[in-house]
Design a binder for these strands. Structure first.
Length: 485
RNA sequence: GGCCCGUUGGUCCAGCGGUCAAGACGUCGCCCUUUCACGGCGAAAACACGAGUUCGAUUCUCGUACGGGUCACCA
């Protein structure tokens, strides 16, 4: 049996942003190709004149490049089966040519009827009646057709679906699906403007471009039987179908840009690492064989397999994404993290005398998403207002009262201390507590509160004091003492 | 409404006739600790429902319920 090299494609229409579900489809198509050293191709489907969005193609290019889903053939780099943009393919008249071929074979026909009216569409939406084209034009005589054509009557070309029998198609994820042909509509292949419909262009392109595996969203599942009929009429081999269930926002709503749900760009802007996003979405709807969950794109091409793809929709879970992102953050070298965190640190910290490397080191284990950084560092520039009750901590056995008593002692000691490095500060506080015969926590807790004004901070009291410097530290402790007065 | 598809803890999912129903995230508890976090240990938590088939069903079949998709000269 002949085995063809795997060729997959990502075929978006340039109508807006890349949402997570789209990206996942692209990822899967890429992985399926690369797993078998196959070809991953990009094709732009712009047959809808009215829905083009400016800049959408660039977003597609950029996102794919950024995430490492590098295409082997595509509009910008060409390839053996180009062009890779449907409107350009259209220019050659190929779709029309194939449609005419179908007419000759009796699998399609000219239709001169009017468009479906809006009222009729609404009826379908309300479930009142079900409209299916009645196929009247398929019964026109040869003479009638020629007369209308000669008279320049506008037309579309429709697929002629058998009225009886059943059609079965196979999907790798869902198995065999059989439907009655009577359920299938005589769908339009060529629109009045001469452009092919998505469904027709898809079949013609996938075949002429040698696509072996079609990976797409499962909103196309119900039109798949019609595809088979088309392939059959042409006498072409049917590709392997892989329909992916959608990524959901909640149990009953798909993730969509329209609702303001996170797009890939949004996630990156919030401080998610692109590798983490890709890793997470790979896991949304696909399960690896073993226990490993963190995968580089490279590792994914090895680990990926069709039988791990699930049939049911997957709800996008931010908590899990956060976890995966934090794993990637922790895996970064201190230098890499500093570089990525710097813009976020600068948002909160304007002071020039603070070492951002020290701050970055403190933050690396304490943030899941980069956007959390500014809030955690907001006390560096200015001490926030705080309630003296912050001084109460039962494990440290502290309270506003103990703080009121201990802070002046601490202040006096610190005034004498010249070396404000963390080690020196810590040693000095511990020594003081020993001298006072109390636990170090009793000093460290009010110290941290006075210096930060927050219940939780990145780093302990002495780390913060060393970052703030002697002058600012003493100032904040004095401020703390006056708050307790 | 017709047709198609789906349904395992809160979430992602493993399972493919016999399991104490696995793991991860999240949640909670304990430990570690200069708060928080990190890290370590542990706990609670699921087979939508009803009939079959079978010695035995989460697993197979059929219904029901719920959810999704589709029924465009959109993709």
């Amino acid at each position: 049996m002949e085995t063809k090299t795997v060729r997959t494609r990502f075929a978006p229409s340039p109508t807006g942003y890349m949402h997570v579900g789209n990206l996942r489809t692209a990822l899967y198509a890429y992985l399926i190709a690369k797993k078998d050293n196959g070809t991953f191709m990009l094709r732009i489907e712009d047959t809808d004149q009215e829905r083009q969005v400016e800049g959408a193609v660039d977003i597609i290019y950029n996102t794919l490049k950024e995430t490492g889903l590098i295409w082997d053939e595509g509009p910008d780099i060409g390839g053996p089966v180009g062009p890779y943009v449907q409107s350009e393919r259209m220019a050659s008249g190929m779709y029309k040519k194939y449609a005419l071929e179908l007419i000759e074979k009796g699998a399609a026909y000219y239709c001169f009827c009017d468009k479906v009216s809006d009222e009729e569409k609404e009826e379908v939406a309300e479930g009142v009646s079900i409209s299916k084209y009645d196929g009247r034009c398929s019964r026109l005589s040869k003479e009638e057709i020629e007369a209308k054509l000669a008279a320049g009557v506008p037309y579309v070309i429709r697929q002629k679906i058998p009225t009886e029998g059943k059609t079965t198609f196979h999907d790798e994820i869902f198995g065999d699906i059989t439907v009655d042909n009577s359920e299938l509509d005589d769908q339009i292949l060529i629109k009045r403007d001469g452009m092919p419909t998505y469904n027709f262009a898809n079949v013609v392109d996938d075949h002429t471009m040698g696509i072996t595996h079609v990976i797409r969203g499962n909103e196309y599942l119900s039109s798949a039987p019609k595809y088979n009929l088309l392939y059959e009429a042409f006498g072409w081999d049917v590709p392997v179908y892989i329909h992916c269930s959608p990524v959901m926002k909640d149990a009953s709503h798909k993730l969509s840009k329209r609702n303001g749900d996170a797009s890939y760009q949004d996630l990156v802007a919030k401080g998610y690492l692109k590798e983490a996003v890709m890793n997470y979405i790979a896991l949304l709807g696909w399960a690896p064989k073993g226990e490993q969950e963190i995968y580089s794109l490279q590792e994914l091409t090895q680990a990926f397999s069709l039988d791990g793809i699930s049939k049911s929709p997957a709800i996008f879970d931010n908590a899990k994404l956060n976890y995966i992102n934090s794993e990637y953050i922790k895996a970064l070298s201190p230098e890499e993290f500093h570089e990525k965190a710097l813009p976020w640190i600068k948002q909160a910290v304007k002071r020039e005398d603070v070492d951002t490397r020290v701050l970055a080191d403190l933050m690396q284990k304490r943030c899941q998403v980069l956007c959390e950084i500014p809030e955690q560092l907001d006390f560096i520039d200015t001490l926030p207002d705080y309630d003296v009750e912050l001084h109460s901590h039962k494990k440290m056995k502290t309270s506003p009262e103990t703080a009121k008593a201990d802070l002046p002692v601490l202040l006096e000691m610190l005034e004498q201390l010249d070396d404000f490095s963390n080690d020196s500060l810590y040693a000095a506080v511990v020594a003081l507590s020993e001298k006072m015969e109390i636990k170090s926590g009793r000093l460290l807790w009010p110290f941290r509160v006075a210096v930060s004004g927050k219940p939780a901070t990145p780093g302990g009291a002495t780390e913060l004091a060393s970052i703030l410097g002697k002058e600012e530290t003493l100032r904040r402790i004095r401020d703390g003492i006056s708050r307790l007065a």
